[in-house]
Design a protein around this nucleic acid. Sequence first.
RNA 1: GCCGGGGUGGCGGAAUGGCAGACGCGCCGGACUCAAAAUCCGGUGAGCGCAAGCUCGUGUGGGUUCGACUCCCACCCCCGGCACCA
Length: 823
Amino acid sequence: MNDRGERFNPTSYERAWRDRWEADDLYRASDDDTRDKFYLLTMYPYPSGDLHIGHWYAQTGPDTVARMRRMQGYNVMLPMGFDSFGLPAENAAIDRGMDPAVWTYANIDRMRAQFRSMGDMYDWSREVVTSDPEYYRWTQWLFVQFFRAGLAYRAMAPVDWCPKDKVVLAREQVEGTDRHCWRCGTPVIKRDLEQWFFRITRYADELLDFSGIDWPEPIRLMQTNWIGRSEGAEIDFAAEADGVAPIRVFTTRPDTIFGATFMVLAPEHAAVAALTAPDRAAEVEAYVATARRETEIERMSTERERNGVFIGAYAVNPMTNERIPIWIADYVLPGYGTGAIMGVPAHDDRDYDFARRYDLPIRFVVAPRGGSASAGEAPGEAFLPHTDDEVLIESGEFTGMSAAEGIAAISACLAERGQGGPSVSYKIRDWLVSRQRYWGAPIPIVYCDEHGAQPVPEDQLPVLLPRDVDFVPTGVSPLQSHPEFLAASCPVCGAAARRETDTMDTFVDSSWYFLRYCSPNEETRPWDPEVVSRWMPVDLYAGGAEHAVLHLMYSRFFVKALRDMGHLDFNEPFTALRNQGQILGADHQRMSKSRGNVVNPDELVARYGSDTVRCFLMFIGPWDQGGPWNPTGIEGIHRFLSRVWAVAQASGSGGADESAAQPLRRLAHRTIRDVGIDYEAFHFNTALSKLMELTNALGRARDDGLAGTDAYGKTVETLLLLLAPIAPHIAEELWTRRGRPYSIHQQSWPDFDPALAAAEVIELPVQVDGKLRDKLVVAPGTPAEEIERLALASEAVQRYLNGRAPRRVIQVPGKMVNIVTPD
RNA sequence: GCCGGGGUGGCGGAAUGGCAGACGCGCCGGACUCAAAAUCCGGUGAGCGCAAGCUCGUGUGGGUUCGACUCCCACCCCCGGCACCA
C-alpha cells in the first residue's frame, strides 16, 4: 500500500462482480416496467465450439450502448441465445461419431460460460436455443401457418446431387469451380427434386420500401439489388408452327422492338420440344443436354462466349410482322422473366455478341436526337440508349419518340392488341427452405395417398427429431431410414401416411428468434402478443453485414407475412441497424479453424482482465470498420485503466485550491457531453480517447496537489460513470471503494452544464493567404471587429502584409481568421 | 463488368470546408533504482536551418474556394457484395 492505493489487479475483483450482478438479477428486463423500453438485439451465434475474439468485438459495442441507455433511464432488454441447428453438428456426427445434440449442447455450455466472462448485461432468463423442442415446436407451428396461408408450397427444383454418395448436397457442400462433392470429390450433377419454398416473392415490392427504418445505406442497396425489380413489358410473338401458343418474352426496352431480329429461348423453355424442326432435333437435344449438365458457375460465367443453336422455327415480330428465327442459348435463364427474349443486337451487348457470332441482322432503331446514325451499318459495338437525347428511328408510327415515350406508347399499343403490355420482373426467387439433412427442425408435413401433403395438426407438435439414428454415411438422410419416424397417419382420414423427412433451413429458425425473446417461456403459443407488442420492434440491431440479404431479409419477410396473418401489429422487425466490421486474422484472412488464425480471447482475459480486452477491442479503430488482429497496444489500454485506478484512489490533504481545479471541472463537463455523443454513434474509439484525456488531466491535477478538492472528487466520479458502460468491472470496483452505493450500473447517466462544457477561451488560428501564421487567444463572443484589429496587429501578420492593406479579411466565428493579401 | 466501402506519420487511427496527425502503440532522451522491471516526465511527419523560422506533406492528376484529407471531374490500388437478370 502507498498513498495511491493498492496495485491495479483486475482478476482480484472482476469475477466477483459478475457473480454478484448475476445473483442480484441486475439485468433482468421486466415486461411490466413503465419506463420507455429499449430492445437491443445482437446476432445470436452458432455454437461452433469456442468464442473467438470476433464475438467479443461484436458484442462489446452493443453492450456499451445498452448500459448507457439503461443509465439514461430506459428499460433495456439485451437477450442472448444460440442458433443451434445446422450442418457442423451433423458433420461432427459423421466424422467423429458424436451425437449432434450432445456435441451442440456441450458447445453451448462452454460458450455460455465464455459469454459470461465478457461482463455483458445479458438477460439470460430469456435465453433461446433453437434446437430445443420447446423452440422448434413453434418454428414448426409457424411453418403450418405459412402453409395454410399459401405462403409455403412444394415444387420441383434442381438440387446438387453427388452421384457417388447418392446424397443431396447443400450449396456450401459443393466446392471449387469444377463443383465437386466436399466429401468424396466427385463432380456433382443437377437433379430435380420436390422442395419446399416460402413465397417471399409475394413481398418483393414491400421489401423494397425502407421508409421508417434507420438502416445502413449499403445494406439497403444490397437488398434492393438482390430483389432486382425491373420494369418493362411482356410481348407475345406468334410462333410459326401449328398448335403452338405465342411465345411471350420479357424486355425492359419494348421501345426497341423494331430492332428485334431474332428470338432466344432458354434451353429449358417448355416450347422448345414442340418448336424444334426435325432436321434440327439432334443438335438441339445435344445442346439442351449439355446445358442441363452444366454447372451453375460455368453457365453464370460472364467470361465465356455466348453460344446457342437455331431450332429451325420462326416467330413473328408483332410490330414489324417479320419472320425472325428462334434460337436457344444458355445465356437466357429459365428462371427470370419468361425464359425467352427478343434479340435486339443493336441495343444490347449480349444480343450483339450473339448476332455477330451467328451472323444475324443488326438493325438500329434508336439514334441520338439530331444525329445522323443510319440503320443497317455495322456498328463498332452495341449502344444502349438511356436518355431523352435519343429518339426512335425506323420504328413506324413511333419514330421520333424519345425512349421513355416509346416504352409507354409501344407497351400501351401491345396491351390494346392483346399481345402483352407493361410488366415487372424481379431477380429474387422464392426461398427454398427444405434441407435433406438431419440436424434441423423437421418440416411438419405428412403425405397421404388420398389427401396429399397435409400439415401436422398443431396439437401434435412438435414433430420430434429422433435421437436414435445412425450417422454412418449411407447416402440418405438418417431420417429416411428411421421407420418409427416415417410412420404417421393422415390428419384428414387417419390412414397410414408417410412423414416428410426434410428439415428446415436454419434461417427459418433465426427469422423469429427476436419474437421468442419477448416471452421465451410461453407453452401454449409462440409468444404472448401483448408482450411482443410492448417490446417489438427491436430498437437497435447490431451484427455483421454478411447477413445483408439472407437473415435480414428473411426476418423482414416473416414479420410482414405474420402481420398479414394477424399475428403481429407492426411492419418491420428492426427499427435501427448497425453493422460491425470484421476482425480478421493476423494474416488478413477471415478467421477460421482450418487456417489456424483464430484468436481465442480467454488467455488475454486471464492476463489482462475483461475490461482491458473490452476497451482494447473498442479502441483499435471505428467499430464498423474492423481489421486484422494485432494485439500490439493492449498494454497501452491496460496502462490507461491502471491510471484510472490510481487517480480514483488518490487522496489529498485539505486546504486545496478549489479555483485551481476549475479547468478540470470544465473538462469533465465537456467529456460528459462528448462521450455520450460518441457512444450513441458507436464511436467507441474516440470516446475512449476522451476518457484518456480526462484521466490524464486528473493525473496532472493530482500531481499539482488538487486531489483534495471537491472538483477532483466529482471528476473522478464522472469518469467512473462514463467508463461504466465500456469497462463495467473497474467502474463498479472503484465506485464502491469510494463508498458510493452499489451498483454504479443503476446510477443515472451524468448531466453536463452547457456553460461549463463550453470553452472558456478560444485559441483562434490566424492565417495569411490560407497559411497559419499566428494564434490569438480570445474570450468566446469577442466582436469580429476586435478580432480583426488584434489579427492585423499581430507581428507575424504585419511581416507578411509588409505595409500593405489587406485585400480581404475572412472570419469564421470561433474558428479562424484569414487575411488575404493584395494581388 | 456493375454496385458499395476505403486509401492520412514507423503502426492503429483523429479531424467531413477552417490549426492535418487528437488518443494510443512503437521508438529516442531523462527521472527513480546498485541494476532491471514497473511507473513518471520530455521529444517524435519529412526536408532545410545554430536559431527564430521556412518549405513540403492526407493514393495520382486536374478543378472549385480566401481556404480542400473533406466538395467536383478523371484515374490507380485495396476490401466487400452481385455477377449473362434481357
